[in-house]
Design a protein around this nucleic acid. Structure first.
Length: 293
DNA sequence: CATCCGTGGCC
DNA sequence: TGGCCAAGGAT
């Protein structure tokens, strides 16, 4: 993609975002870095509509990292509700503690400091630095990867893992100006979330349809390696979810309740032990468990 | 690098 | 109906 095409791509996406961006709470002018950080952890593998109410309740109860750090991890897990992957609640709590200990209670602004926090990987560190602090970073999430795969590379879906070539493409497209780069990051994500979707891309409504390599090639079908879906029925994840749901909804969970929730004894015991090992559950007395206090 | 880790909605 | 997907991270 040459300089003129890159400029056209920037202009089209940024103009589209200016017009169509959703008014999400963590994007408001009054949104704190902590609000942005909480949203990013919650949004990992979780749809926006499900995050909205939990994010609001979370910020209401714990407006700063110090507020959360002063709480028990069990309360964080309970507040997490049914967002899924509850270890994220533990990581957010641990991150809040680290922020208090290492950063005076303020969410750090540098990529490296963010990356060092629990639950913060490359994507989340880049996203917080970019969205909360206006810094210039390549923000490669599933949406951006799909947009670039289609518009630039001309394939329907990106590879399973981020490749060097893919990162090079994203880096080459990142606007030089810091503020513009930050807007570009959120704008390309939004385009992937609202228009260039995985299942039914709305090419008719796409601001870069005229520049899209995948569309120009006639929307060739994906021909890469099969993208494995995650099994669910009968897995440890389902079993763990059942058990933890009991603990969220009560002060104490008994062995009888756990047995009623999952028939297989071996798997049940393994998952129970796993939840305790992960810090999601505490054994109070033999046969009785609760969220960590 | 492959696998594990929740949950719910959609076509 | 069930596979697929949703702002990934840790190991």
């Amino acid at each position: 993609m040459d300089a003129a095409q890159t400029a056209a791509l920037h202009e089209s996406v940024l103009a589209w975002y200016d017009e169509h961006a959703r008014d999400l709470p963590w994007r408001g002018l009054d949104a704190t870095p902590w609000s942005v950080m909480v949203s990013e952890l919650m949004l990992q593998q979780t749809p926006v509509v499900r995050v909205l109410p939990v994010h609001a309740a979370w910020l209401e109860r714990w407006p700063t990292p110090a507020d959360l750090a002063a709480e028990t991890t069990g309360e964080a897990v309970r507040m997490w509700g049914r967002l899924g992957y509850p270890r994220r609640a533990l990581r957010l709590h641990a991150a809040a503690t680290a922020i208090v200990e290492r950063h005076g209670g303020e969410v750090p602004s540098s990529y490296d400091d963010l990356l060092a926090l629990p639950g913060v990987g490359d994507y989340t560190a880049s996203a917080i630095a970019s969205f909360a602090f206006g810094k210039r970073h390549v923000v490669l999430d599933t949406n951006v990867r799909r947009v670039l795969a289609r518009a630039v590379t001309g394939v329907e879906f990106p590879s399973t893992a981020v490749t060097r070539a893919e990162r090079d493409v994203a880096t080459a497209l990142l606007p030089d100006d810091e503020a513009t780069a930050a807007t570009w990051a959120v704008a390309t994500m939004e385009l992937g979330a609202l228009v260039c979707t995985a299942r039914q891309p709305a090419c008719d409504a796409c601001p870069v349809a005229g520049l899209c390599a995948w569309r120009a090639a006639g929307h060739p079908a994906y021909d890469g390696p099969p993208r494995r879906g995650q099994a669910w029925a009968g897995t440890d994840r389902q079993c763990r979810g059942r058990i933890l749901a009991l603990a969220r909804d009560a002060d104490v969970v008994t062995a009888a309740q756990v047995e009623a929730a999952w028939p297989g004894a071996e798997q049940r015991e393994r998952c129970l032990a796993g939840l305790v090992a992960d810090g999601l559950l505490t054994q109070i007395t033999p046969g009785r468990w609760a969220l960590p206090g």
